[in-house]
Write a protein that binds this DNA or RNA. Structure first.
Lengths: 360, 360
DNA sequence: CTGAAAGCGCTTACAG
DNA sequence: CTGAAAGCGCTTACAG
């Protein structure tokens, strides 16, 4: 009777299988160490008792939490459809983690300082083997903090502001926004559009330098592509391009304003590449209002909004981002999270994935 | 040197404070048991060593995981803005949990059967003290499963199909959709609107019975309110009302269709109460296209979409849903998750919260 | 290939 | 109010 209420332990399995608990442990963790016949006996006992190891005990003894931590933000954070993308990323991260028998612990933090405090506590309580950072930026103090604490981590987002993205000493995975926007732009060009505007986000763009933010990266994707397609480059081409690009915020209303400015200044506007689905929706609605139904609009993120309104967008392919992140943190075939050895794995630890152009 | 790499343990704290490890443990878990002077010594040692207890050890010994589990779905799941709401709920749940020193573990599951399998493993691995279920429905097998496994759980969502919501033997928290929609409808009436339509979701509504789904619940909120305001009820009033309600799916396009049907059949239509922001957006866009700018539209969920497009909506108040859920699972002031004792807490374990009408 | 012993870092139950 | 002992359920390190 009392036996029924207690979940079975490794001792019960050992007894039923007629082996020691150590052999049971080996069957579960290093099956190749155990003779097939013994292994089968143990596995049968595991099955008949419906045994699942107590994870706290395993963690305590092995000093591995088999968990990764990721921050979740409120929807009110900047970016109209941020909730979507974050939700998808968290979903894909859990899927990828579960495939590798890793748990995902979600935490919140209002400010960067709060996040660092919280990360410190999570690390010291031995409750995580690795951290996934998102929304990293130039001189992000979290990178330094985690580096100092010698904890494995990875950022979803390339290290903005670095000369050589591939020289950083922390691993990252990102979507190549410039390449995605370039592909969208080239697709429009190929379809015959010739006056392709860009509706982006206001950034602290320093002309000639490498991108320092997501918004700038995407803008450069459009600009470089048009320079290449429309002319030989040079000062004149740059000048005429600058009239085709407008910048604002991440909101539908700002997208509407950008659309109006483009309508005002570009006589034969026939397409607009947008930095996001939000901005794209603003443009689309404004063009509809102005009865300019022939102007083609593309977005970014492939949110349900782009599906519903039927405009082309770029899918971040977050499933692949998530599985790449874990492949870096755990090794291609590894089963535990460890610091990346940059001497040996420099290239593999920095992954730039191409977004998928979804034409509609 | 080797000391620097190892995080401090309860032994280190005991040594610095000049007490036993047991007293350190008491200071952290039952401070009132310890003499203030001793307590201060210990707390100072904790601070100077920057000590945080090893959670795996604590969990193993105390047989409490201090964690709750919640399922996260992909955005592609039905419901255009579902990702938003889920993301917000998860965010608020983490916030509420962290306030009570509880961790949130997120898991995924494709089907209900998979979810039950996964829950079984989570429970047996002693990795959760409680489960938060969402999207429960009539005869949900997960409820039975968790009941049988004797694990504390709570559903966000009332037990659809039960005669008496408050008689179920499992705790739940929900938003009172009917009351919210009723408030929106009454607000419109008070403002002078008299031909208030309803755009809802197709449901298996059985006339006269209590609501069996979210969509039906919301529909009834509109219907009851108009019956009360517009007349004495009775067969004639019901009939005239039925022409004012149209049903479809959870998509913008379906919302557009609903709007067209209402325009066709209701001559003086001046407002439409919608079952969701998604449907409301469809209606709004369709009315704009038809230049019926004077028809007032309301939504549900207060997503960023309703903010951006400036229509009235009902906020689910997920922060309160989350903190109520934990108050039920842990007791108003408790610090651990336990099964609710229904003999003692019947009322408190079933909480119906009113959504907040956000007028725009 | 298998097992007896040790121990991960805490909290519990109890004695004083 | 405080401490010495036991033990949570595993994995590790090692002996045979």
């Amino acid at each position: 009777m009392s036996k029924k209420t207690r979940p079975s332990s490794i001792l019960d399995v050992a007894e039923v299988a007629g082996v020691s608990i150590q052999t049971v442990s080996n069957v579960l963790n290093f099956p190749e160490r155990v003779r097939p016949r013994t292994r089968d006996q143990v596995l049968q006992a595991v099955k008949s008792l419906d045994y699942t190891p107590n994870l706290s005990a395993r963690r305590l003894r092995s000093k591995k939490s088999s968990s990764i931590s990721v921050r979740v933000d409120a929807n009110s954070s900047p970016g109209l459809f941020r909730g979507f993308i974050q939700n998808d990323f968290v979903y894909e991260l859990i899927e990828a983690a579960e495939n590798r028998h890793i748990k995902v612990i979600a935490y919140t933090a209002g400010t960067e300082k709060q996040e660092i405090d919280k990360l410190g506590r999570i690390i010291k309580s031995r409750d995580t083997d690795g951290i996934i950072l998102t929304s990293t930026h130039v001189d992000d103090p979290r990178l330094d903090f985690l580096e100092r604490n010698n904890v494995p981590f990875l950022s979803f987002g390339k290290p903005w502001g670095h000369e050589n993205l591939y020289s950083t000493t922390h691993p990252w995975v990102d979507i190549d926004g410039a390449a995605g926007i370039a592909e969208a732009t080239a697709m429009l060009w190929k379809k015959g559009y010739r006056n392709i505007g860009f509706a982006g986000w206001e950034t602290n763009n320093v002309p000639g330098e490498s991108a320092r933010s997501v918004g700038e990266d995407r803008y450069l994707g459009w600009k470089e592509t048009l320079l290449k397609l429309a002319g030989k480059g040079g000062r004149r081409a740059e000048l005429s391009l600058s009239a085709l690009a407008v910048f604002g915020e991440q909101s539908i209303e700002s997208g509407r304003q950008s659309a109006r400015r483009l309508l005002d200044t570009v006589p034969n506007l026939d397409a607009v590449v947008c930095v996001s689905d939000t901005v794209a929706l603003g443009c689309l609605l404004e063009f509809q209002r102005a009865s300019k139904h022939n102007i083609c609009v593309t977005g970014f993120d492939n949110t349900p909004i782009s599906k519903e309104f039927g405009f082309t967008s770029l899918d971040q392919n977050l499933a692949e981002v998530a599985s790449s992140a874990l492949a870096i943190l755990m090794g291609e075939k590894g089963n535990q999270i460890r610091k990346v050895d940059f001497a040996a794995e420099q290239t593999a630890a920095h992954v730039l994935l191409k977004p998928i152009l979804v034409v509609r």
